[in-house]
């Protein structure tokens, strides 16, 4: 499988994403500079974490107009797997590939710590290696992770099982105390209605290797690879 990792000016988790897919999971990875377009032959696209364009104006607001995003949108619209982590999630929101926006964390702090998220939907192309309700410990590192959308959109994504991850306690209880950033309904990750675009604030690429003492994130990448091995779901 060949994974494309988009590099924006200010991305800083791009090499972690490359490392996980290439060195840990043995796949081919192509780094795609944001001014380029996507070359044919890519099976999935990752938008990595970081501070694209210094988070100027709003997080992701300028990166969404990077030339590569036209190709990323086309790739997503054809059913290709697209995953945005942290700043990548923020870019997907600004680009309209996922519904909603990110507000500043209610604490105003940049929060960098391990959190627990509950797998709300294990029947997705990104979570098929997880069990429904499974609790994953994954680190977050952001200042703008306070997910918000209007009540109608929220009702829609809940009804359609598009909420993939929610912040929870170590025991899997979704409580206000377990919500690190004020995110609406404890939302940590959502997918689009078609199920081929995922955005999540926690960083699975930072916990996907034995030596790091936490391999929870690996489940998400293995799920993607499993999806890609099913020929009917790959992009033509």
């Amino acid at each position: 499988m060949k994974i494309g990792v988009v590099v924006f000016p200010g991305s800083n988790c791009d090499h972690d994403c490359q490392y996980i897919f290439q060195d840990v999971l043995g796949q081919k990875v192509e780094m795609v500079w944001h001014k380029e377009t996507l070359r044919p032959g890519l099976d999935a696209i990752l938008l990595p974490g970081g501070f694209s364009y210094g988070d100027y104006l709003r997080t992701g607001a300028i990166a969404r107009f990077s030339p590569v995003m036209t190709a990323v949108k086309a790739f997503a619209n054809k059913g290709g797997l697209v995953m945005g982590i942290c700043n990548g999630f923020q870019i997907l929101l600004e680009a309209g590939l996922l519904p909603g926006v990110m507000l500043r964390n209610t604490s105003l702090n940049f929060i960098c710590k391990d959190v627990f998220v509950k797998v709300e939907n294990a029947a997705t192309r990104f979570t098929n290696h997880c069990e429904s309700g499974q609790v994953l410990k994954i680190p977050i590192a952001h200042a703008d992770g306070n997910y918000y959308t209007d009540p109608v959109t929220l009702g829609g994504i809940k009804a359609n099982a598009q909420v993939v991850f929610r912040y929870c306690t170590a025991e899997g209880k979704v409580t206000p105390e377990a919500n690190p950033n004020g995110s609406l309904d404890n939302i940590a990750g959502i997918m689009n209605a078609e199920g081929n675009v995922l955005g999540m604030m926690p960083h699975p690429e930072r916990c996907a290797e034995t030596v790091l003492g936490n391999e929870a994130g690996r489940l998400i990448f293995l799920s993607m690879l499993e999806t890609l091995h099913k020929p009917q779901l790959t992009v033509v």
């Binding site: 104006l57 709003r58 607001a61 300028i62 107009f65 600004e94 909603g100 926006v101 507000l103 918000y148 959308t149 209007d150």
Partner: peptide
């Protein structure tokens, strides 16, 4: 298009 995010 850019300067405001009209969702919020």
């Amino acid at each position: 298009k850019l300067l405001a995010n009209t969702v919020i």
